[in-house]
Measured scan of single mutants.
Amino acid sequence: MTEYKLVVVGAGGVGKSALTIQLIQNHFVDEYDPTIEDSYRKQVVIDGETCLLDILDTAGQEEYSAMRDQYMRTGEGFLCVFAINNTKSFEDIHHYREQIKRVKDSEDVPMVLVGNKCDLPSRTVDTKQAQDLARSYGIPFIETSAKTRQGVDDAFYTLVREIRKHKEKMSKDGKKKKKKSKTKCVIM
């Protein structure tokens, strides 16, 4: 069974824990209790493949930012979460993405942009803004509501699919490099 290491990042209060708990335990946590770091595991079937999701729910508070490099190193894919009623959390996505790329030393890291709290009427981040940002990053965008469960499975499952595509691409690139290195030079 394939294991996928997913990391949920975003500013404090955007609903990272609520999304994760909704996926794992099928219930909505409405009281806000700032996370330092929590880890969850769940076995699911995605596109006919049974897999184990190892999900790291991270601290959004700035005082825990020193811990970010460590979990970013171990993560295979990242859910970059903002709240649709919090423009600052949307603007912060850029910083999370840049930090992930720096730590992973790669421009090509599996990510999904997630606009959470889409059940709320007080939207300050337009869907088109988020779609445009995701398009500019070359990553999928999904709106979710941890409260109603809308888009929750889709967000995590899409990230797994992005990781699969990335692994497939990397193995193809690896095979191309191996083929090239088999060419021999004969000096007579």
Rank of each mutant, 00 (worst) to 15 (best):
residue 128 K to R: 06
residue 44 V to E: 08
residue 2 T to C: 09
residue 47 D to A: 10
residue 186 V to T: 04
residue 101 K to V: 14
residue 174 G to P: 05
residue 22 Q to D: 15
residue 170 M to V: 09
residue 125 V to D: 10
residue 70 Q to T: 15
residue 177 K to S: 10
residue 73 R to A: 10
residue 165 K to E: 08
residue 59 A to K: 00
residue 173 D to C: 15
residue 26 N to W: 13
residue 73 R to Y: 11
residue 35 T to V: 00
residue 97 R to F: 15
residue 49 E to C: 09
residue 97 R to E: 10
residue 71 Y to E: 04
residue 56 L to S: 05
residue 173 D to F: 14
residue 184 K to W: 05
residue 133 L to Q: 08
residue 137 Y to C: 10
residue 18 A to Q: 15
residue 71 Y to V: 05
residue 129 Q to E: 13
residue 176 K to R: 05
residue 128 K to E: 08
residue 133 L to F: 05
residue 11 A to D: 09
residue 155 A to I: 09
residue 33 D to I: 00
residue 52 L to H: 09
residue 74 T to L: 07
residue 42 K to W: 07
residue 72 M to R: 11
residue 23 L to Y: 08
residue 57 D to Q: 00
residue 80 C to Q: 06
residue 113 L to E: 02
residue 50 T to H: 06
residue 45 V to S: 11
residue 124 T to Y: 08
residue 14 V to P: 13
residue 4 Y to K: 15
residue 153 D to Y: 06
residue 139 I to M: 06
residue 116 N to K: 05
residue 25 Q to G: 15
residue 136 S to Q: 14
residue 141 F to Q: 03
residue 73 R to Q: 08
residue 177 K to R: 06
residue 132 D to C: 04
residue 7 V to C: 14
residue 60 G to C: 01
residue 177 K to C: 12
residue 25 Q to C: 15
residue 83 A to Q: 13
residue 72 M to H: 04
residue 110 P to V: 03
residue 107 E to M: 15
residue 85 N to Y: 08
residue 41 R to T: 04
residue 118 C to T: 11
residue 28 F to Y: 10
residue 103 V to P: 02
residue 21 I to V: 04
residue 156 F to M: 05
residue 15 G to T: 02
residue 24 I to D: 01
residue 129 Q to N: 11
residue 156 F to G: 01
residue 60 G to N: 00
residue 139 I to R: 05
residue 102 R to Y: 10
residue 99 Q to A: 15
residue 131 Q to A: 09
residue 97 R to P: 03
residue 42 K to V: 08
residue 133 L to K: 10
residue 149 R to Y: 11
residue 21 I to H: 02
residue 169 K to D: 08
residue 159 L to I: 06
residue 68 R to N: 02
residue 50 T to K: 07
residue 78 F to R: 02
residue 134 A to G: 13
residue 84 I to G: 14
residue 43 Q to L: 04
residue 131 Q to V: 09
residue 20 T to L: 03
residue 86 N to E: 12
residue 56 L to M: 04
residue 187 I to M: 04
residue 137 Y to T: 13
residue 101 K to Q: 04
residue 164 R to Q: 10
residue 187 I to N: 11
residue 44 V to F: 10
residue 13 G to P: 15
residue 67 M to K: 11
residue 47 D to F: 14
residue 19 L to F: 11
residue 72 M to E: 02
residue 9 V to W: 02
residue 54 D to H: 13
residue 3 E to F: 05
residue 76 E to K: 03
residue 135 R to T: 09
residue 22 Q to V: 04
residue 69 D to Y: 07
residue 141 F to H: 06
residue 122 S to C: 08
residue 43 Q to D: 11
residue 167 K to R: 10
residue 137 Y to W: 10
residue 30 D to Y: 06
residue 77 G to Y: 13
residue 151 G to N: 15
residue 26 N to P: 03
residue 16 K to R: 01
residue 28 F to H: 01
residue 168 E to D: 06
residue 57 D to V: 00
residue 110 P to E: 02
residue 33 D to A: 00
residue 166 H to C: 11
residue 34 P to Q: 01
residue 125 V to Y: 09
residue 82 F to G: 15
residue 73 R to E: 08
residue 68 R to L: 01
residue 25 Q to R: 03
residue 100 I to S: 10
residue 69 D to R: 10
residue 139 I to C: 11
residue 34 P to S: 01
residue 40 Y to F: 00
residue 165 K to L: 11
residue 72 M to T: 02
residue 6 L to S: 15
residue 76 E to C: 12
residue 181 S to E: 05
residue 57 D to G: 00
residue 80 C to E: 02
residue 155 A to L: 05
residue 178 K to I: 07
residue 93 I to T: 10
residue 134 A to C: 10
residue 126 D to H: 06
residue 155 A to H: 14
residue 98 E to G: 04
residue 113 L to K: 02
residue 166 H to E: 06
residue 177 K to G: 11
residue 98 E to V: 02
residue 188 M to P: 15
residue 188 M to A: 05
residue 118 C to K: 07
residue 23 L to G: 06
residue 129 Q to W: 12
residue 14 V to T: 12
residue 14 V to M: 08
residue 76 E to S: 07
residue 13 G to R: 09
residue 41 R to Y: 02
residue 181 S to D: 07
residue 12 G to C: 09
residue 110 P to M: 02
residue 105 D to T: 07
residue 107 E to W: 07
residue 184 K to G: 14
residue 127 T to C: 07
residue 3 E to P: 14
residue 182 K to F: 10
residue 28 F to R: 00
residue 83 A to G: 11
residue 123 R to G: 12
residue 13 G to M: 09
residue 78 F to S: 02
residue 55 I to N: 04
residue 183 T to F: 14
residue 47 D to R: 13
residue 151 G to F: 12
residue 4 Y to N: 09
residue 82 F to N: 03
residue 178 K to W: 13
residue 119 D to G: 11
residue 159 L to K: 02
residue 71 Y to L: 01
residue 81 V to M: 07
residue 115 G to W: 08
residue 40 Y to N: 00
residue 27 H to A: 15
residue 168 E to V: 06
residue 115 G to Q: 10
residue 65 S to I: 07
residue 188 M to I: 04
residue 128 K to G: 07
residue 164 R to H: 11
residue 39 S to W: 02
residue 160 V to R: 09
residue 101 K to P: 01
residue 127 T to I: 06
residue 16 K to W: 01
residue 11 A to K: 08
residue 157 Y to F: 08
residue 177 K to Y: 07
residue 76 E to I: 09
residue 43 Q to S: 11
residue 188 M to K: 11
residue 101 K to I: 06
residue 133 L to I: 08
residue 83 A to N: 14
residue 95 H to R: 13
residue 4 Y to D: 10
residue 173 D to E: 05
residue 83 A to D: 15
residue 73 R to I: 06
residue 20 T to G: 01
residue 187 I to D: 15
residue 104 K to S: 13
residue 103 V to C: 12
residue 144 T to Y: 01
residue 104 K to H: 13
residue 113 L to A: 09
residue 74 T to R: 12
residue 95 H to N: 12
residue 2 T to F: 11
residue 154 D to M: 06
residue 48 G to Y: 08
residue 22 Q to P: 00
residue 158 T to D: 03
residue 45 V to Y: 06
residue 158 T to C: 10
residue 85 N to S: 09
residue 47 D to V: 05
residue 58 T to C: 02
residue 38 D to I: 00
residue 26 N to T: 08
residue 154 D to S: 06
residue 93 I to N: 04
residue 16 K to C: 03
residue 114 V to H: 02
residue 21 I to W: 02
residue 59 A to N: 01
residue 129 Q to V: 10
residue 62 E to W: 02
residue 98 E to F: 01
residue 31 E to D: 10
residue 19 L to A: 14
residue 103 V to F: 13
residue 106 S to N: 08
residue 60 G to S: 01
residue 141 F to I: 04
residue 119 D to C: 08
residue 122 S to W: 07
residue 49 E to G: 10
residue 106 S to D: 14
residue 2 T to Y: 13
residue 90 F to G: 05
residue 82 F to T: 14
residue 140 P to T: 03
residue 82 F to L: 10
residue 102 R to P: 04
residue 154 D to H: 06
residue 133 L to C: 09
residue 184 K to A: 03
residue 172 K to Y: 09
residue 79 L to P: 02
residue 52 L to W: 12
residue 130 A to W: 15
residue 33 D to R: 00
residue 185 C to D: 12
residue 48 G to L: 07
residue 136 S to R: 07
residue 72 M to V: 02
residue 81 V to H: 05
residue 108 D to G: 06
residue 129 Q to T: 11
residue 134 A to V: 12
residue 31 E to P: 01
residue 98 E to A: 05
residue 123 R to V: 10
residue 118 C to W: 06
residue 53 L to W: 04
residue 5 K to G: 11
residue 101 K to G: 13
residue 111 M to D: 06
residue 79 L to G: 01
residue 86 N to M: 03
residue 45 V to D: 11
residue 78 F to A: 02
residue 18 A to D: 02
residue 72 M to N: 04
residue 164 R to T: 03
residue 169 K to E: 07
residue 30 D to H: 12
residue 77 G to S: 13
residue 167 K to T: 10
residue 40 Y to M: 00
